[in-house]
């Protein structure tokens, strides 16, 4: 907390109400099962995410949080309600190459080097590759020296870093993270959270993170939204009071622990009763 005394008032955690970047307006999503029955994945969710805000969606598995992310990414269409991203249809954002994603599947192409994988969004957008930007991001995620390596030569954590670098390379307007560290061990995961927090503080992109880790959500996000199990709906929202840039030390503070307890209880209502 070295910066606490320095004049960084504009970094205050509770942001003033700025323009809305992502607007989920009473959305619902149902899937038709093979036996003809209807499965309600999301009951009714309304959520506004401001420009430059980092929101974490927290919930048990199967609560439809990944589905929300897929709706924002235009990989699915809502059954009810409307999704508006940057004032437009979600497809417009991906068509304009303004969207960055990192999923639990790193989805690196095995035949490309790390450098070529990170540069891929440039090529898919039909732009010439900005070598400096690619190099800078590879360095930022701590993969310098592995530019010419292939994904299979790297550890799980390093692959996820490459996938994070790829999601940021085009300076996207919106960043979607779906359990990007879900497959990692606890130590690596914590380390990746610290690095992502540092990178994000530099870039300040509107971000929606889906996770089932309470600590991850609290450490990274400006606002944590808790969802209930199937059918998914929002049951709790808390503003995270920690200033940025956040040091790993805050994870040991009493305030952090209290919030962890509060969120954990919200996730397990049966135990609370």
């Amino acid at each position: 907390m070295t910066d606490a005394s320095s004049p960084v008032a504009h970094l205050s955690p509770v942001r003033p109400a700025t323009e809305t970047a992502i607007d989920l307006d009473h959305i619902g999503k149902s899937f038709r099962m093979e036996n003809g029955r209807e499965l309600v994945a999301i009951d009714e969710v309304s959520l506004k995410i401001g420009k430059g805000e980092f929101v974490a969606l927290l919930g048990p598995s199967g609560c439809g949080k990944s589905t929300i992310l897929r709706l924002v990414a235009a990989l699915e269409a809502p059954s009810r309600g409307r999704v508006v991203v940057e004032g437009r249809e979600p497809e417009d954002l991906s068509r304009a190459h303004r969207l960055g994603v990192a999923f639990q599947d790193h989805a690196l192409l095995p035949w490309l080097t790390i450098s070529a994988n990170v540069a891929l969004p440039f090529q898919l957008a039909g732009r010439s590759v900005d070598r400096k930007r690619v190099e800078e991001l590879i360095r930022l995620v701590g993969l310098a020296g592995f530019e010419q390596a292939r994904p299979r030569q790297l550890s799980g954590g390093m692959r996820q870093r490459a996938s994070i670098a790829r999601s940021l390379v085009l300076h996207p307007d919106v960043l979607l993270l779906d359990e990007p560290f879900g497959a990692l061990d606890a130590v690596t995961r914590r380390q990746m959270n610290v690095e992502l927090q540092r990178i994000w503080t530099d870039e300040r992109i509107t971000t929606l993170l889906v996770t089932h880790s309470v600590e991850e959500a609290l450490f990274l996000a400006d606002r944590v939204v808790v969802m209930s199990g199937r059918p998914g709906r929002v049951i709790k929202t808390i503003e995270v009071p920690f200033e940025r840039p956040r040091q790993p030390a805050i994870m040991r503070s009493a305030e952090f622990h209290d919030l962890v307890d509060e969120l954990t209880l919200a996730l397990e209502p049966e135990e609370a009763a």
Partner: peptide, 29 residues
């Protein structure tokens, strides 16, 4: 196709042709 790559190409706004030359064809090698 490699896991997750199909979604990735959609999200990154790849055209059908780019998707074919950069993802589908190399996957078949």
């Amino acid at each position: 196709l490699p896991p997750g790559s199909s979604d990735l190409f959609r999200v990154l706004g790849a055209s059908r042709w780019t998707r074919f030359t950069r993802l589908v064809l190399p996957s078949a090698v």
